[in-house]
């Protein structure tokens, strides 16, 4: 019995020495983060909807861009966070990096979905179709699949340490592959389609449009970080619950 306690205490020490500090730090950071992101997104929304001109070519649909572009940015940002955290987790074996990678995935996937959805809603009036197999939409769709695979792998492997390492390998292989996939899709696209569709990447963005875009981008990124922290906190607690359950089951087995 005493032996049992010592083992679980040692485990707890290993798993929570640093997470305890993380919990304290993130608890202090969260309130200002929520407030700031709300403020910046609110300001961004004001400019996006009320205080910016319609585009001379896209008309009012340009306002979709103020959601679409930040969502697409966060889709890529989320994967980068995931890949970097995975690499750190593999190299340093720090439990927090695993939790960070795991927590980033659903947020990134949600913004990827949003980028696809708003892209589609913009494409219908502008291109005349809900879905265009253009290089961007296609590669974002594949990015979405990568996210789903990553989440599925975490969900399937029961033991957290093992799931973390396997998922980290997947995230890194994906990170290496993303440029290759991206290039192949662009190549495929130029082969199959004359570049006739209207492109968004015009040479100039009017400053009046840059302001709402920047505000929405910054605000939603802050929101991303806040969400990431909350989810990481939930993961820390989930591990704690798991350890407590294991200890309980062990002592029940002894009794």
């Amino acid at each position: 019995m005493a032996d049992m306690n010592r083992i679980s205490a040692a485990q707890r020490f290993h798993a929570y020495a640093n997470p305890a500090r993380f919990m304290a730090l993130s608890a202090r950071l969260l309130a200002p983060l929520w407030g700031l992101s709300l403020l910046v997104v609110g300001a961004g929304l004001w400019f996006a909807l009320f205080d910016s001109p319609p585009d001379y070519q896209q008309g009012e649909t340009v306002r979709i861009m103020y959601v679409h572009v930040p969502a697409a940015w966060l889709a890529m940002f989320g994967y980068s966070v995931m890949a970097v955290a995975s690499a750190a987790g593999l190299v340093f074996r720090h439990p927090l990096s695993d939790l960070c990678a795991k927590s980033a995935a659903p947020i990134g996937a949600a913004f990827t979905f949003l980028a696809l959805l708003t892209g589609s809603l913009w494409g219908k009036p502008m291109w005349g179709t809900w879905w265009e197999w253009d290089a961007r939409m296609t590669s974002v769709l594949i990015l979405f699949f990568l996210y789903l695979g990553y989440i599925a792998l975490w969900a399937t492997i029961e033991e957290p340490a093992r799931a973390a390492r396997a998922a980290a390998v997947l995230a890194l292989v994906g990170a290496i592959n993303i440029p290759i996939i991206r290039y192949s899709v662009v190549w495929w696209n130029t082969l199959h389609q004359p570049a006739s569709v209207f492109r968004m990447d015009g040479p100039t963005i009017a400053p009046a449009m840059l302001l709402p875009l920047a505000l929405m981008g910054i605000g939603l990124t802050l929101l991303f970080v806040a969400l990431l922290l909350v989810r990481m906190r939930a993961e820390v607690m989930r591990r704690r619950v798991r350890n407590l359950r294991l200890a309980q089951a062990a002592s029940a087995g002894e009794a």
């Binding site: 649909t61 969502a71 708003t118 219908k124």
Partner: peptide
């Protein structure tokens, strides 16, 4: 400007 459905559903979805 006639694009109400697309603009507003984008924002609603977001």
């Amino acid at each position: 400007g006639g694009y109400a459905f697309f603009v507003w559903s984008s924002y609603a979805a977001a």
